[in-house]
Amino acid sequence: MRLVLASQSPSRRMLLEQGGVAPILHPAHIDEDAVIAEMRGAAPADIVVALARAKAEAVAGEFPEDVVIGCDSMLLLDDELLGKPHTVEATIERWKQQRGTTAHLLTGHAVVHRSEWVTETVRTAIRFGDVSDADIEAYARSGQPLECAGAFTLEALGSWFIDSIDGDPTSVIGLSMPFLRRCLYRFGLDASDFWE
Rank of each mutant, 00 (worst) to 15 (best):
L3P: 11
L3G: 07
V4M: 10
L5V: 07
Q8T: 03
Q8Y: 04
R13C: 08
R13Y: 06
L16G: 07
I24T: 10
L25H: 12
H26T: 11
H29Y: 10
E32V: 06
V35R: 02
R40Q: 14
G41Q: 05
A43L: 07
A45E: 14
A45L: 09
V49W: 06
A50V: 00
A50F: 00
L51C: 07
A54Y: 00
K55T: 00
K55D: 03
K55I: 02
A56H: 09
E57F: 07
A60V: 11
G61L: 12
G61K: 12
E62C: 04
F63R: 03
P64A: 03
E65N: 13
V67A: 09
S73Q: 14
L75P: 09
D78V: 12
L81M: 04
L82D: 04
G83P: 06
K84A: 02
H86G: 02
T87C: 05
V88S: 01
A90K: 14
A90N: 14
A90H: 13
T91C: 15
E93V: 15
T102I: 12
A103M: 04
T107H: 09
A110H: 04
V111G: 08
V118A: 05
T119F: 01
T119V: 01
E120P: 00
T121C: 06
V122A: 03
A125W: 10
R127Q: 12
R127P: 12
F128W: 12
G129E: 06
G129P: 13
A134T: 11
Y139V: 05
A140E: 05
A140I: 11
R141M: 13
P145N: 06
L146N: 01
L146C: 00
E147C: 09
E147P: 03
L154T: 01
L154P: 00
G158W: 03
D163K: 15
D163R: 15
S164R: 07
S164W: 01
I165W: 04
G167F: 00
P169K: 08
P169M: 04
S171P: 10
V172R: 09
G174R: 10
L175H: 06
S176C: 13
F179N: 02
F179Y: 15
Y185S: 15
R186C: 12
L189Y: 12
D190W: 11
A191M: 15
A191W: 15
S192A: 14
W195M: 14
